[in-house]
């Protein structure tokens, strides 16, 4: 397994591409707050990616506005899972309200938002698409696994709002773009 991960680290710079905006100019600061927008399990993938990238982040799947305190970036992992909503003990309406209040709080506190969609085509559908349309306009940058953007939904929204969009072939290739997105943590 280690050899696969080393291989992916070597390959990742050549397989991702910045499609829109100027991804090079967007930089985020640590620590980040990782939360789900839809309770899909990909939030755990994001957490593993951040750990492997050596980035400081807190995972809170059901973070509220108050949890933003002490964080410099909000990571929203997009995708609705009914099983995940059940696991969190909430319904889709409650989740939408939570995410909207989080978006509002982040905007008010000028905390930049990085949106990730890591579940590919399997994590699309009516509920997920509604969540994507709600969150994306607030994002400072978007990273998406390519086959989740087959129909160009992410491309269209990002183009309309001039948001840099990065597509990666597979989740594992998101590691290097994530590293590049974050400034080095200079805290002692």
């Amino acid at each position: 397994m280690k050899k696969y991960l080393i291989l992916c680290l070597l390959l990742s710079p050549v397989v991702f591409s910045s499609l829109l905006g100027t991804a090079e100019d967007v930089r985020f600061d640590q620590p980040a707050l990782i939360t789900s927008a839809g309770q899909a399990a990909e939030v755990h993938l994001a957490n593993v990616l951040f750990k492997r990238a050596g980035l400081t982040a807190t995972l809170n799947k059901t973070a509220e506005a108050a949890d933003l305190e002490g964080h410099k970036t909000l990571i929203l992992v997009l995708g609705v899972s009914l099983k995940g909503l059940g696991a969190a003990g909430i319904d889709a309406g409650h989740e939408k309200k939570r995410v909207e209040s989080l978006l509002l709080a982040a905007d008010e506190q000028s905390i930049p938002i990085l949106c990730l969609h890591l579940g590919g085509e399997a994590r699309r559908g009516d509920l997920s698409d509604q969540m994507i349309k709600t969150c994306l306009p607030h994002a400072a940058a978007v990273l998406v696994v390519k086959d989740g953007n087959k129909d160009g939904l992410f491309t269209a929204i990002c183009r309309n709002h001039n948001i840099p969009l990065i597509e990666v072939e597979k989740t594992v290739y998101a590691l290097e773009p994530l590293k590049n997105y974050f400034r080095q943590d200079r805290r002692p």
């Binding site: 399990a41 593993v48 995940g84 579940g119 399997a122 594992v172």
Partner: peptide, 21 residues
């Protein structure tokens, strides 16, 4: 599960993750 899923992606096996409610 997340670590294994990424390893499987590199083997061209796509899985979706679901948390046990």
């Amino acid at each position: 599960a997340a670590v294994a899923l990424m390893d499987l992606q590199l083997q061209n096996m796509d899985f979706r993750l679901e948390e046990s409610p």
